[in-house]
Design a protein around this nucleic acid. Structure first.
Lengths: 197, 197
DNA sequence: GGAATGACAGATTTCAACATCTGTCAGCTG
DNA sequence: CAGCTGACAGATGTTGAAATCTGTCATTCC
């Protein structure tokens, strides 16, 4: 709106884009809207992002990275036993996703659309999360708490088996009564499957 | 088209509806089309199904029941050991879904739309499948092969943990290289989790 | 001279007039 | 008279002309 004296950076454009997406939704958020919100012409936005798709991808990456960072602390906490770390990590992922979906369903739906457009960014994010899991699994194998011939493969399996509690396509199920226990049952099954005997 | 002398039954209407859905897709399949395919007026269809939604629900139920029946044989085969039965059942479910999604993607997409419209029918179908799993789990507990304090809860957990390999919302992932091994890894983890120690 | 602008062509989206569909029912038909 | 028909009202979907958007670039501005 009001022209700012600050220089136009990619960062400022990304913030404005998030705001426009929040207000207008993914279908009606245009580059012209973003430019208007910043008080510049839309041509200036194209100086920082080659296409609208590239702009949306950058927004998506930022959003996904925020979630990764929330969890990386738990995965890296080598002071705690692997069982507890794994439980906490999975629970933190579930709670983070559920909170985002429940608090602002429209914004969550917006980011689901963006994620759908950017398979690559999502794949990288998932790779990131599985790497965090692999770190916990390897720690467990090292202490003798877990048995896993191939920690990376096992980490993938844990991630995929927990899909119902973090994959956005199941978001509607996260509000139903009983999910908490369903989640606990799946985690119990996985931890039993991991435990050395 | 050509008027048949056969009486107009709910069964014949359902068959014609499936055909119309196959040809036109879920968005363009109308009750008028179904009536035309049968050589009757659309008013006659409304004699057997109160609404278009009811007709679609009946088609959905038929389709879901066909899958349930495919699997019930494995679940009921008390002669085989529970580990093998569980493996086979999960694999049969995965293969059946993958075949349906891969062979005729458009038809599969059609049924995904129908399923989305009929939450109740889907919930019943899922209840059915989990009951079949529970039967296998209970058999395993009886023979001492499995440890499960609450077989129904465990059956739910097994079903949900395998979601990535039977839930239609992951259908695109079923064609990617590596799914086979991902599936095997998740089944291995679950069977280890079930095994008595 | 590097950053921003705004007019422009082609692609995409809106919107309202028009067409089709759903569900009902009085009456026809065998 | 049981089953079917077809005209109908209101709801839903289609269509194409007008409006908006995307991406470019010659020009302006500091």
């Amino acid at each position: 709106m009001a022209p700012t004296s600050e220089p136009l950076t990619a960062e400022r454009i990304l913030e404005a884009t998030e705001e426009v997406l929040r207000r207008h939704g993914p279908a009606k958020a245009t580059v012209v809207d973003v430019a208007r919100a910043l008080g510049v012409s839309h041509g200036s936005v194209y100086r920082h992002f080659r296409t609208k798709a590239a702009l949306r991808e950058a927004v998506t990456k930022r959003w996904l990275d925020r979630t990764s960072e929330e969890l990386s602390g738990i995965a890296a906490d080598e002071d705690r036993v692997p069982e507890a770390r794994l439980r906490d990590w999975l629970e933190a992922l579930f709670r983070a996703k559920r909170r985002k979906a429940g608090d602002d369903p429209e914004l969550f739906a917006t980011y689901m659309v963006l994620a759908g457009e950017n398979g690559t960014a999502v794949a990288e994010h998932i790779g990131d999360l599985i790497a965090q899991l692999a770190r916990i699994v390897r720690a467990g194998v090292d202490t003798g708490a877990f048995a896993a011939a191939d920690p990376d493969r096992t980490a993938r399996a844990v991630f995929q088996a927990g899909g119902r509690f973090h994959d956005p396509c199941h978001a509607r199920a996260w509000e139903k009564p009983g999910v908490e226990d369903d989640f606990a049952a799946v985690v119990d099954l996985m931890l039993r499957g991991l435990a050395a005997r």
